[in-house]
Computed example of a mutant assay.
Amino acid sequence: MKISDRGVLEIAEHEGIVPAPYRDSVGVWTVGVGHTAAAGGVNPAKLPRGMPADVDAAVLDYLRLFDADLDKYEARVNAAVKVPLKQHQFDALVSFDFNTGGIYRAKLTEAINRGDKGGDGFMGWVKPPEIIRRRKAEQALFRTGNYDANGDQIPIWDVDSNGKLRGILKTISGAELQRLMASTGSGRKIAAGPKRSPWAGLIAALLALIGKGKS
Rank of each mutant, 00 (worst) to 15 (best):
T100E: 11
K72V: 10
N99M: 13
Y73A: 00
A75N: 08
P84T: 07
V94Y: 01
L85H: 14
K86E: 08
D97Y: 00
D71T: 12
A92N: 09
G101L: 01
L93W: 05
L70C: 09
K86I: 00
F90L: 07
T100W: 08
P84C: 09
Y73C: 03
H88N: 14
Q89W: 15
A79D: 07
E74F: 03
D97F: 01
N78C: 13
N99I: 14
K82R: 13
D91R: 06
G101W: 00
V81C: 11
N99H: 15
D69P: 00
A79V: 00
N78K: 14
A80I: 07
D97G: 03
F98W: 13
N99C: 12
Y73G: 00
Q87H: 15
L85V: 15
D69E: 00
V77Q: 03
K86Q: 12
V77I: 10
E74Y: 04
S95M: 10
D97M: 03
R76A: 11
A79L: 01
F98P: 11
F98L: 09
A92T: 09
P84G: 07
D69S: 03
A79E: 05
A92Y: 08
A75P: 08
F98Q: 08
V77G: 03
K82V: 12
N99L: 13
L85A: 14
T100H: 11
G101N: 02
L70Q: 06
Y73N: 12
D69V: 03
K72C: 05
K82Q: 13
N78D: 15
A80N: 07
R76N: 08
V83L: 03
L93Y: 04
N78R: 15
H88M: 10
F96Q: 08
L85T: 15
R76G: 01
V77D: 02
V94S: 01
D91S: 13
V83I: 10
D91V: 05
F96K: 12
A80K: 05
L85R: 11
L93R: 09
S95W: 07
Y73S: 04
Q89V: 14
Q89D: 13
Y73F: 14
K72L: 13
D69F: 00
V94N: 02
F98D: 06
